[in-house]
Computed example of a mutant assay.
Amino acid sequence: MFVASFSIPADGFALGHTLETVPEMTVKAERVAAHGTVWVMPCLWVTGDDFDAFDTALKADPTVDSVIEVEAFEDERYYQLEWDDSVNQFVDALIDTEGSILNAETQNEAWHLRIRFATREQLEVFQDYLSSQNHSFQLLNLFKPKAPRQERGELTAAQRDALVAAVEQGYYQIPRDSTVEEVANALGISNQAASERLRRGIEQLVTTVLVEPEK
Rank of each mutant, 00 (worst) to 15 (best):
N141C: 04
D75S: 12
Q80F: 07
E121F: 08
N88S: 12
F90I: 00
A34N: 07
K28G: 14
D85V: 00
N134Q: 06
L58N: 06
V87M: 02
W45C: 14
F51V: 01
Y129D: 02
L81Y: 07
V70M: 12
D96W: 06
V64F: 14
L155E: 01
E71H: 08
I101D: 02
N141E: 13
L139T: 13
M41R: 06
M41A: 14
P42R: 03
V32I: 09
E124I: 15
I68L: 11
D75V: 02
I101E: 04
M41Y: 02
D75F: 06
K144Y: 03
I95Y: 06
E30C: 06
D84K: 08
G36W: 13
A104V: 13
Q89R: 09
A165D: 04
S86Q: 14
R152Y: 11
T97D: 03
A93I: 00
A158V: 00
T156Q: 07
D161W: 00
V46I: 09
F90N: 02
E74W: 08
L102Q: 05
V64W: 12
V32Y: 01
L44M: 07
A162Y: 05
E151R: 14
Q133N: 01
A162L: 04
D65T: 07
Q159I: 03
K146T: 15
F117S: 04
T156L: 11
A165Y: 01
E98L: 09
E76V: 01
L58W: 01
D65G: 04
L155N: 06
F143R: 05
A53C: 10
D84W: 03
R114D: 09
E98R: 12
A162V: 01
G153A: 06
E151K: 09
H135S: 00
T56I: 10
D55S: 12
A147D: 08
T97N: 01
N108F: 08
K146P: 03
V87P: 03
L140P: 05
R77S: 13
T97I: 02
W39K: 07
A93E: 07
V46K: 01
G36A: 09
A157E: 14
A53E: 12
W111F: 11
I101H: 07
I101Y: 10
E98G: 06
T63V: 11
N88T: 01
S100I: 13
E71A: 13
F54Y: 05
A110P: 10
A147E: 11
R152P: 09
D50A: 14
R31W: 06
P42D: 03
K144Q: 09
L140T: 15
V164F: 06
W111A: 14
D61M: 11
Q138R: 07
R116P: 05
D84Q: 13
D128R: 02
L142N: 09
Q89H: 13
E121V: 10
L58S: 04
S100G: 05
L113Y: 02
D55K: 13
D92Q: 07
A33T: 12
V46A: 03
L102I: 11
Q150Y: 07
H112V: 11
Y78F: 14
L123I: 05
T56H: 12
K144D: 05
P145C: 05
A34W: 06
A34H: 03
Y78M: 12
